[in-house]
């Protein structure tokens, strides 16, 4: 029994909506294999019957299991790499050159999913900022309570860890726990997690130096995109930085932003922000460690 095209499309739409992860045609076998045990557990004859169950009004709980089963192992640490090179090689240094009495950098990981982005930022901060006597506070938010819980727990399976975690950082910031790995107390203490709906008015928030809003806007219509960018603008320092996904832009949506280039990477800043100093992108610590003998 193979997965029907309708069932695949339903699951792909669900996963894209809930997690921003795109399942391309050709990944039917992946859906089939990942959902087989859920189908068995639900007492369904096959995955097609299980997907029919998801469509019923009482399918909400099973839907969240499907999103988790399909997105597990699909989120990379240091996802896209360039944003994190710009962060650790240039932006952290620029922020620490400013007068800042509290010596604190505040960062928002919006739509944090299972927390890989927030903890990636925390690792870079622990490497490049904390040793210089500065503090980094990271707020990680997601619409889904299940994702907020996962981020707070900070426990990742072996396969999740396999997705792009540099080995030197793994052994420094994670401990084995059962079949997986648990994030260290040091990183956890840097990350505060809460639920938040980006498309609704925000609760009181601190002013952030950096906002990561990656691969989220693409799922909103133009009017909502503009609203979200406007609200983000209100919680971002006038000299701050906004990270969007590789396929996302503020152009043509909200003209209160301008683009600034750091190495190969483009970051968005509130219009009128002082241009970033042209610092070359330094290699990420713990990444590309070759050539060291």
């Amino acid at each position: 029994m193979t997965l029907s095209p309708e069932a695949f499309r339903f699951v792909a739409d669900l996963v894209r909506r809930e997690s921003a992860i795109v399942l391309e045609t050709g990944k039917e076998y992946l859906v089939d294999s990942r959902l087989r045990s859920l189908a068995v557990a639900a007492g369904d004859a096959d995955v097609n019957a299980y997907v029919d169950r998801l469509r019923r009004p009482d399918g909400a709980r099973e839907k969240s299991k499907v999103v988790e089963a399909m997105t597990t192992n699909e989120t990379s640490w240091f996802r896209d790499r360039e944003p994190f090179q710009a962060l650790s090689g240039t932006i952290f240094q620029e922020l620490m050159q400013r007068p800042n009495a509290s010596r604190t950098i505040r960062i928002w990981s919006a739509a944090c999913s299972s927390g890989q982005e927030a903890y990636t930022i925390a690792m870079l901060a622990a490497e490049h900022v904390v040793p210089l006597g500065w503090r980094v506070e990271i707020v990680a938010t997601d619409l889904a309570q299940s994702m907020v819980d996962r981020t707070r727990e900070g426990r990742y399976s072996q396969l999740e860890i396999g997705r792009g975690m540099p080995a030197p950082l793994l052994v420094k910031y994670f401990q084995r726990e059962g079949t997986g790995w648990k994030v260290s107390d040091q990183l956890r203490s840097m990350v505060r997690v809460q639920t938040l709906n980006l498309a609704a008015p925000y609760p009181p928030m601190p002013v952030f130096d950096i906002v990561f809003l990656r691969n989220v806007l693409i799922y909103f219509d133009a009017a909502t995109k503009k609203q979200v960018l406007g609200r983000v603008r209100q919680v971002l320092d006038p000299q701050g930085y906004l990270f969007l996904g590789g396929a996302e832009t503020t152009l043509g949506i909200d003209d209160s932003w301008e683009r600034s280039t750091i190495g190969r990477f483009t970051v968005n800043r509130p219009r009128g922000a002082v241009a970033a100093p042209t610092v070359g992108t330094a290699p990420l610590s713990g990444l590309a460690a070759r050539k060291v003998i």
């Binding site: 192992n73 990379s76 790499r81 396999g162 997705r163 792009g164 540099p166 990444l287």
Partner: peptide
């Protein structure tokens, strides 16, 4: 065990 994507991620890390 590891996935094909995990191997690709490692190659990416190593340049």
């Amino acid at each position: 065990p590891f996935t094909a994507e995990a191997m690709a991620d490692k190659l990416d890390l190593l340049g």
